[in-house]
Amino acid sequence: MSSRGRRANGGLLTYLLDRVGIQGFISRPQEGRISVKGALEAAFIKPIPHTSWWSCFGGIAFLLFLIQAITGLLLMFFYIPADPEAHRTILYLSGLAPFGWFFRTTHHWAGIGMMLALSLHVLRVFVKGAYQRPRDLNWVIGSALFFLTAGFILTGDLLPWTRSAYWSAVWWTDLVGNFPVIGHQIMLFLRGGENVTGSTITRFYVFHVFLLPTFTTLLMIVHFAIARKLGISEPL
């Protein structure tokens, strides 16, 4: 088949998948079909270097992301993103729902832990100089994941609709509104109007449970695929 024909048959997609290593992760290219068993076997027998405990913080951050996804899903069964139902449902969740307080607190601590683990992961990558080529693309994706995690915390804080969360949200959205040229439009988009109201809760809820998790999951897949392809960086 000519190169033009290959491009027409998904050559660009194949190139991109090969660039980030996803194709090799989900299938054996030489077999020409997707094999879950083969992928699992390859994952388990893949040789990896023996590294220090500093190398585990990326994995711990991912584990805490999974804990947050599970506890967040359980909280969603009770939560209503509106004023004043948001506060009432959290009140019910904290006092009356079985283990509601525990899942809410676990969700909170896992968020702090994820940010801490990510910070330590970034510190290791930074000190080792692993942000340089060929891992430069992975640094950019990783830093995007870092900011997305901060976005999780910022949007999730308002959801209980408490007094302190309200004033925090007013302050930081107002700060965003002071960005030159486009700041005010971004603030209106975030708040759903001029002020922080019930519609802001709904918007932050959509960010917190749909948009941010979707982008985070997609970027994580690419991040892991590149890390798997290039391997863990060498020590100093």
């Binding site: 004023d83 904290s94 525990f102 209980p160 007094r163 002020n195």
Partner: peptide
């Protein structure tokens, strides 16, 4: 995470009043 959650349960502030 489980120990932190059990020892330091999250309190709930008053409802927001714009």
């Amino acid at each position: 995470i489980a120990v932190l959650s059990a020892l330091f349960p999250l309190s709930l502030d008053q409802i927001a009043d714009p």
